[in-house]
Computed example of a mutant assay.
Amino acid sequence: MNSAPHLHSEDRAEYERVLNDVLRTAHNRPELDGIGRRLTAEQLRTMALKATSHITGAAAAEYGHYVTARQEARASAGGPGGGPGPAAGAPSETGAGFAAVITVLAPVLAGTAALILLLVGYVLKAVSPDAAFAETLLTAGWFFGALTAAGLLAAAIGLLVTALRNRATQVPAEDATGELPDEVARAKEAWRHALLERGVLPFLRAALADPGADPASHTPPRAVNRIPKVGYSGPDFSSPSDGGPTGPRPTFTSPDFTSPDFGPPENRPE
């Protein structure tokens, strides 16, 4: 099985959808009629989710084409992956983050100050109506109240502008009619078909046929009868002791060495 590319998080839901559709319609598939006897549909689903990389590897080529087509469609739309967009937006993201913090904190702080000042001011005014300090506190409280209202208005405008900007640069998964571009749709359908026929169904069949399949294990089930026997046998090597035919064995004789004392008279030493 081919090694699968990393399955993007946005595609994991599609993989689970294909798996769930198969398990839901298993009663219409004769090859999956063993569900419920030894392994339930939920156990098979758990096994398939643990073996995601193993199963999706069967459709690695189609998935790679689908991802490429999707990235090209996004690039042509000017979204992420289109080149200079993210780089150009990097400096503004930091500034936007700081401005967002200030926009959120300013109304909170101003509102808190306004509440405290108004509360203390009205209490002092109730105790001593002629106290000048109470009027000062009330004036400051209403000033911070105005700042709170202005901050809330600025925050609302900022959220609206951010939403409009994100909508303009957002990469739509679908076009205005709710459909994927033709090339992406064809690539996605090809991946789904390959994932179903070469990944999910063979895995489920193997799990049902493997008596040792364990739902709690991360190891994929053994494929039954996956490797056919090759129609040849190895050469027959046998030793002579096995009863096979043997030929005549060569005979060896050692050379005749004699001592000088036993040689002919003419060869004896003086």
Rank of each mutant, 00 (worst) to 15 (best):
S3A: 11
P5C: 01
H6A: 10
H8F: 10
V18R: 09
L19M: 05
N20V: 12
D21F: 02
D21Q: 09
D21W: 03
V22K: 00
L23C: 09
T25K: 13
A26I: 07
R29N: 10
L32I: 11
I35S: 01
G36E: 04
R38K: 06
Q43Y: 04
R45Y: 00
A48D: 02
K50C: 06
I55M: 02
E62A: 15
Y63L: 10
Y63E: 02
Y63S: 01
G64Q: 12
V67Q: 12
R70K: 15
A73L: 03
A73V: 02
A75P: 05
S76P: 00
A77I: 03
P80T: 09
G81A: 11
G81Y: 12
G83C: 05
G85I: 06
G85K: 10
A87P: 00
A88W: 15
G89K: 14
P91R: 11
S92T: 14
E93F: 11
F98P: 00
F98M: 10
F98G: 04
A99Y: 06
A99M: 10
A100W: 06
V101P: 02
V101G: 12
I102C: 08
V104D: 12
V104R: 09
A106C: 03
V108L: 15
L109W: 11
A114Y: 05
L115C: 11
L115S: 14
L119D: 15
V120D: 07
L124A: 12
L124I: 13
L124G: 07
K125G: 04
A126I: 08
A126S: 14
A126M: 10
S128M: 13
D130G: 13
D130W: 06
A131E: 13
A131M: 08
F133D: 12
A134Y: 07
T136D: 05
L137D: 09
L138F: 00
G141S: 11
F144G: 01
G145F: 10
A146D: 09
A146L: 15
A149E: 01
G151K: 01
L152W: 11
A154P: 00
A156R: 14
G158Y: 09
V161E: 08
V161S: 09
A163W: 14
N166R: 15
V171Q: 12
E174K: 12
E174R: 13
E179R: 09
E179D: 14
D182N: 02
V184A: 06
V184M: 07
A187F: 02
K188M: 08
E189C: 03
W191D: 05
R192I: 08
H193E: 13
L196K: 08
G199D: 01
V200L: 01
L201N: 00
P202F: 03
L208H: 02
P211K: 01
P211M: 02
G212H: 10
G212S: 11
A213W: 03
S217K: 07
S217F: 07
H218K: 11
H218A: 15
H218P: 11
T219A: 12
R222N: 03
R222G: 00
N225C: 00
P228K: 06
V230N: 04
V230H: 09
V230A: 15
Y232H: 12
G234P: 04
F237L: 15
P240C: 03
S241L: 05
D242L: 05
G244Q: 06
T246E: 13
G247I: 04
P248R: 05
P250Q: 08
P250M: 01
T253K: 13
S254V: 01
P255I: 00
D256S: 13
S259K: 06
F262K: 01
P264Y: 05
P265I: 03
P265T: 02
